[in-house]
Design a protein around this nucleic acid. Structure first.
Lengths: 304, 304
DNA sequence: TTGAAAGCGATACCAC
DNA sequence: GTGGTATCGCTTTCAA
């Protein structure tokens, strides 16, 4: 190499001339772009905000820039975004992908891909395992005397939804409870609100919602119909992203989206540095947070 | 040119060979990257989510990809992000920049820049003018009998904060009301919650918060102290991003972040196509949404 | 060790 | 009109 002082001299000269290496030219030459892409189904869903933030922070610390894609809950749009972004990035993070397993597996460029909340064998993925806590929620409701409950589902292509749905159904069967399924067209406040009448008409005494947003919409819908929470119906959310900010405070399943984002980025950085891997599933725990929207079931004379 | 059939033949061949023009090589050659960057102070602030979504949607429709930067409310970090991103993009959108006017004016690359909620003469900018609605909020409180109110401020480097603060102060003076200022360290739920005791100790009968997040934190803080809203104290928020989701529903100033994002992107696309401009300010209206957190001032014997 | 030259992949210019 | 070629800025390889 050169002597230390020469290096310093050069650096000084470079700085005084305002020289900056051209990232684009470098990328063309080396194939390494210094960028990564993060794709989510809906930026406005509060679950993704902390996740995005965590990914951004970790990427920035590693000197990488991030492209953000919003698929708008649509697999075709997601596919298109990937196509447009992957040639300009070194790696991809797909959060709650709405694509099919086959579409996800399809090779794209040659950069590593990390999945969040999507369980595709052979790929790197971080999974927020809400099943145990969802089962705990069912038992919690059973202990409060509820025997007929509703699961207000999310998108069918959502792994989280399948995971929670299965756990609720199984736990319900084990506790000899009746579990009714009602879909929320979209995992949003509006979706939850729209589902409220259908939920009410089942005469169930409790509802477990796909996520906090749906739960919050459900609460608003119930309030509109004059149905008291938790007096007339108990409600459980999922994600704990706005639970302390509802009134009454929402009983929910905490799922730490920031941790999921950070971990995904960590794995991606590792793949970027150490090369490909056989594809590992990283599990993240959840916890049932019992707050104020769950209470003893109303007695039978109040029902249908 | 060539005959139509030849063109079709070529396209077929290209498609069957799986050919895609290399965006990076093109960028190196032409200097046009097909990317734009959006920088916000905090992705998790619900004001920015619809804004980001709108920018993303419009950019995507125009065939552009977007880089997202989170400055974490820090001007130095913002500066760094701009430095890293601007060489790879055709244009920049700076939302609620925390940098000084001089820093913002400093030339960066040669792409157009559009500011959101930052009033720098000679630059393109879209401004959500909350001043009239803030004044209306003060008059609304006056009509309800409030004579001593608090303004819970946001970041000092925020143009929106300066705008709202000035409007509240002026309107207060005009109505012969006492206006006390209390800062929220950060425009967040936590910041609002932390400010609650200080607000309470002023014995003011109403508070206008910098934004909905601060207002929500304030409501939670009041609840914790056993202070009723709006019974003991009235609260007004700003932005209308979660107003219908608080309990009681928040009286607030609606500021349409999605419209701001869409308009900023529209202006940027125009500059990209039509070249530089002298720098125009585009104003966006706001509206006072009167909901349930404002009520008549408690009578005097309750104070002091 | 150091310097010179050949890509990377597309564009744009300029002779033919 | 159209084909050939220099160029964008950096990396990497290969001679000297």
């Amino acid at each position: 190499m050169l002597s230390a002082k020469t290096v310093a001299l050069i650096k000084d000269a470079a700085a005084s001339l305002g020289y900056t290496p051209n990232q684009v030219a470098r990328a063309l030459s080396t194939g390494r772009h210094g960028n990564i892409a993060l794709i989510v189904p809906d930026v406005t869903n509060p679950f993704f905000a902390p996740l995005i933030r965590a990914v951004e922070a970790r990427a920035d610390a590693a000197g990488l820039c991030i492209f953000l894609g919003d698929s708008d809950e649509d697999s075709a749009r997601e596919e298109r975004l990937i196509g447009k972004l992957s040639p300009q990035v070194d790696g991809l993070i797909l959060a709650s992908s709405r694509m099919s397993d086959e579409e996800i597996r399809m090779p794209r460029g040659r950069g590593p891909i990390v999945l969040i909340n999507r369980d595709v064998e052979g790929m790197d993925r971080v999974l927020v395992d809400s099943a145990p806590a969802a089962a705990a929620a069912v038992r919690h409701l059973h202990a409060l005397g509820h025997r007929r409950i509703v699961y207000v589902g999310g998108p069918t292509s959502s792994w989280s939804n399948q995971c929670r749905r299965a756990a609720v159904l199984l736990a319900g069967r084990e506790m000899a409870m009746e579990v009714i399924e009602i879909p929320a067209r979209r995992p949003s406040y509006e979706g939850g609100m729209a589902a409220a009448p259908a939920v009410r008409s089942t005469h169930a005494t409790a509802a477990i919602a796909f996520d906090d947003l749906v739960a919050q919409g459900l609460m608003a819908g119930m309030a509109e119909m004059g149905v008291g929470v938790p007096g007339d119906i108990s409600i459980v959310g999922c994600d704990d992203v706005l639970a302390t900010r509802t009134y009454p405070q929402l009983t929910t399943i905490a799922s730490r989206p920031d941790a999921a984002g950070r971990m995904a980025m960590e794995i991606l950085l590792d793949r970027l540095a150490a090369g490909p891997s056989p594809g590992v599933a990283h599990m993240l725990d959840t916890e049932l947070m019992i707050r104020a929207t769950t209470a003893a079931a109303p007695n039978d004379k109040g029902r249908g």
